[in-house]
Design a protein around this nucleic acid. Structure first.
Length: 594
RNA sequence: GGUCGCGUAGCUCAGCUGGAUAGAGCAUCUGCCUUCUAAGCAGACGGUCGAAGGUUCGAAUCCUUCCGCGAUCACCA
């Protein structure tokens, strides 16, 4: 049975301290040995000084001697200041490699070994197409879901589609007024883009009317409230809520166009969902829960009939949960929807909400309310809060047309990938269809990696003028390394090598690779705990850099010793597998050639 | 104003549950393709980790204050 190095060493270091100093050590601190010193893993002596009094160098030396003597995995040691650097035997790493060689998706935890979690992401409004901000949201949500899966959770991906409200009525009204019956078919426009066009058209008229009212003597505020086209849209919303047949029919038709458009974008992006929720079904939810909470004393009623929660003791404010006319606010819906989901999927114990950091406060309050209402799963709710994507010109605004459209961006990335590929000209023998698929893979790889490698909570400044890089710390660089390994594997396959691992020592570059591989399982868990695809991205990058260095320095197929050659082929294959499996967690595919 | 987040090389980012001389990529410069894919490798250049205090044997990392940027504090979503 193969044991993890730190597990073995923790035990043995404690044993050493017990045997030499007669003291009980609560914990042992490890870190990878820095490149400038000899060693593979380092024990930090300083924290031990609380238990063992004395000179850190002397203590480190004595422990080092004990380990070399009593632990077969430890070959040598040296002590620098309070750092005990251990050289781990080649045999350990070879054994490690043998233990993972046949493991499918090494690093992934057994499926469904942990609680089920629901991950919500995307959740767009249906009045306009998706843009770069949605792309970040989608990539993050999808990736975190995949990471949670790999960490052993059962995962349900979901989204709540904001299909009702004043925003969609604006598009509907404008279409009714100026659309002349235009449809996606008649216009050749993608459905979501067509509806978005009328959202912009609405805003144009609205703005003009405001200007007119202001020049007629109204204040800006009055004008914004009284513009006739806005009043019409509000009237349309009232009709929708009353179930007016014509309005509902128009609403269904235009939403249908939008869904078709979204489906295409989702498919191009490579994201998917297990369960969809529609706001038109859920916007009335939560009101009975409020009633319930009133009885429990979680909420209180003001004289005008509105219902509130007092969160001042928790450092927050008072928050409304039901309007004085008894209708639901956003918070009410979210309370209801959360409960609905747990009812629909009784096995879930925890939810992840992928929503921008502008809603930090909202989710803080939502989670607190659910907790006060006494739901056991309220502690397992997580707001995956991410920073906005800004342009050099500032914030993106759909109404003003200053957005980077999702479909356009995906297309641009694909085009850039095509240009670069054609310049490099390595695709002889590929059909046009194969080439096109490859350009898509690379272009999306560049985009996804570019966005996911950044810590979610940081904002991203996206400059459309400077295209996303394809060199250095990028998706294509990593894909390229994968393709490079595949090329070797194809050639190795023709050689009919005996692929039994029979080596007894390893090259320093091989050792570095093995150390890097050993980190992967923990990295997956860490990424899951932190809800951070960036950790996975940075890990693969390190692995790939290490591989390229190895590749450049030692010959794989040119190696004369057949055992070493076989080992290097095996090692390369495993590295490729991990690249592939890690990239899968980011929703990025890898090509066999590029 | 209250609350939350961010501030690391010219630019984009790692490192942040405290540990050795703060790491990558881009850009600039130098080498390396008759040898497994040069979207690569090796190297050079580049830093008062926003500022000041504090805790500690040890601080980019933890605490306090301040500065800068952003978000939020609606009977909007």
């Amino acid at each position: 049975m193969f044991m993890k190095l730190t597990t073995v060493l923790e035990e043995k270091v404690k044993e050493a301290v017990q045997s030499i100093f007669g003291q009980e050590l609560p914990a042992v601190e490890f870190q990878p040995t820095r490149k400038d010193f000899e060693g593979d893993i380092t024990v930090v002596v300083f924290p031990m000084l609380r238990v063992v009094k004395g000179n850190p160098v002397a203590i480190g030396t004595q422990i080092g001697e004990y380990l070399v003597e009593n632990v077969e995995e430890v070959a040598k040691f040296n002590v620098v200041k309070g750092f005990l650097n251990l050289v781990v035997s080649d045999a350990y790493y070879i054994n490690f490699f043998k233990s993972i060689l046949a493991v499918e998706q090494f690093g992934y935890a057994p499926a469904n070994s942990k609680d089920a979690v629901m991950v919500e992401y995307s959740s767009p409004n249906t009045n306009k197409p998706l843009h770069l901000g949605h792309i970040r949201n989608n990539l993050l949500g999808y990736s975190v879901a995949e990471i949670l899966k790999a960490a052993g959770h059962k995962v349900y991906k979901t989204q709540i589609i904001n299909d009702r409200g004043i925003h969609i009525c604006k598009s509907m009204l404008a279409w009714q007024k100026f659309g002349k019956g235009e449809t996606p078919d008649s216009s050749g426009l993608k459905g979501d883009h067509l509806v978005g066009k009328y959202y912009v058209a609405f805003d144009k008229v609205y703005k003009a009317q405001i200007a007119e009212l202001i020049s007629a003597g109204k204040t800006k505020e009055e004008a914004e409230k009284e513009a006739p086209i806005l009043l019409e849209a509000q009237e349309m919303l009232r009709k929708w809520e009353a179930g007016d047949a014509q309005v509902v029919e128009l609403w269904k038709m235009m939403n249908g166009w939008v869904y078709k458009g979204f489906d295409t974008t989702y498919e191009n992006l490579g994201v998917d969902f297990n369960q969809l929720y529609y706001e038109s079904d859920t916007y009335l939810l939560g009101r009975d829960v409020v009633q319930d909470g009133l009885e429990k004393g979680v909420f209180f009623k003001k004289e005008d009939g509105s219902v509130w929660i007092d969160l001042t003791e928790d450092g927050l404010d008072e928050k409304i949960v039901l309007r004085s006319d008894g209708t639901a606010v956003y918070m009410t819906q979210d309370i209801g929807t959360a409960i609905q989901r747990v009812t629909d999927f009784p096995d879930i114990n925890g939810m992840v909400y992928t929503v921008g950091n502008e809603q930090d406060y909202h989710f803080k309050v939502l989670f607190l309310i659910l907790k006060k209402l006494g739901y056991s799963w309220a502690d397992k709710l997580y707001h995956l809060s991410y920073g906005m994507v800004d342009l050099p010109s500032g914030k993106m605004k759909s109404r003003e047309g200053t957005v980077v459209d999702a479909d356009d961006l995906i297309q641009n990335m694909e085009d850039t990938a095509a240009e670069i590929s054609q310049e490099l000209g390595k695709l002889d023998g590929y059909s046009d269809t194969e080439k096109q698929a490859l350009y898509r893979t690379i272009g999306l790889g560049a985009l996804k990696y570019y966005i996911l490698k950044v810590d979610p909570k940081k904002r991203i400044l996206f400059n459309p003028e400077e295209s996303v890089d394809f060199q250095g710390n990028t998706g294509p660089f990593i894909q390229y390394t994968y393709a490079r390994i595949q090329s070797i594997l194809r050639k190795a396959n023709e050689l009919n090598l005996d692929l039994t691992v029979a080596v007894t020592s390893v090259h320093p570059k091989e050792k570095e690779l093995l150390k890097q591989l050993e980190l992967f399982p923990n990295k997956v868990q860490e990424a899951a705990e932190n809800h951070s695809p960036a950790l996975v991205a940075n890990y693969v990058y390190d692995l790939v850099k290490e591989f390229n260095s190895f590749y450049q320095q030692v010959s794989i197929l040119g190696e004369e010793d057949t055992q070493i050659k076989a080992f290097r082929v095996n090692l390369s294959k495993k590295v490729a597998d991990v690249i592939k499996d890690a990239f899968l967690l980011l929703g990025i595919h890898v090509p066999v050639r590029m």
